[in-house]
Amino acid sequence: MSDQTYLSLENLSLAYGKTTAVKDLNLTIRKGELLALLGPSGCGKTTTMRAIAGLMNPVGGKIVLDGRDITHVPANKREIGLVFQSYALFPHLTVFENVAFGLRMKGVQGNELRQKVEAGLKSVGLLSFAERKATDLSGGQQQRVSLARSMVVQPKLLMLDEPLSNLDARLRLDMRSELQRLQKETGMTMIFVTHDQVEALALADKIVVMRNGAIEQIGTPEDIYNRPATDFVADFVGFENIFKLRDGKLIADGKEFALGAECPNAPGLAWRPGMVTLGEGPFSGTVLGVSFAGNIRGYVLDTPLGPIRAEVDAARPAYTLGEQVAFDLPVASAAPLHRVG
């Protein structure tokens, strides 16, 4: 494992003045991996990224990139690329000059410069825009310029801050596949920061879920989606029915409820709405809300366990508001949580 490690953060601690933002963070990334830092705003993901880039000095811990301790290396010597959420293009320069900036800093000139910039612009499909003012382009185009600007210098690590959040829905899909393509083509190690679990699941090889300046769970998209380690992660990836477990019984509203089958030895269990069985089972509840969403129908039930959210095939006959419905929380499909609260 360790000889494969490309970037490692060891006990990294970050603070703004006296406010701690990240505490004792440990994380390793392998070469060529596409890692997502996922979490709600204020969880420390962007701060972590800024520290890796060298825009902020850690109060403790170590950052090692490609075998070299870069903790105290200034940002301009780290060879790390960063695509800012705002793109941060230089307003006074053309698209060409924006992309050429980093190369010029490395002393690349003349034909070599032109070739490299044009290759970079070509890879993001903006070659014909080379002489435009960078800030005259649309948001999506600006992002591609920013991406090309960061990639032409062939950084050891490319980081992207919320790369899709400023784009509209269609552009978002395009950009997603473009990022994947570029990563596969170049084999570049990438980290991107996002608050959107859908993005993280779709793009990343590995996801780090953060909360309050600490790591909540690290895993593959499948791990995170199917086997959330904590109630926080479960909630974040769409498990809407989450319960504590004590002595094999569900705890809700201070009362214990026995489930139909034997429970695993875990502090909690979680079900997605689609995992709840409606129409049969040991529990029952009153329909509080119904919402139709194409192929499925969603329900909110008022039950002794508290509100339960369920989704069933929309082809089945609908329950009406106020109707009593039997339901089950099948233990077999539930995700066992390792930590609750």
């Binding site: 690329g81 293009l89 800093m105 210098v153």
Partner: peptide
């Protein structure tokens, strides 16, 4: 924006 300076620094300036 303040981040264009950060961008320049990250690009080696």
């Amino acid at each position: 924006r303040a981040d264009i300076e950060e961008a320049a620094v990250i690009l080696g300036s």
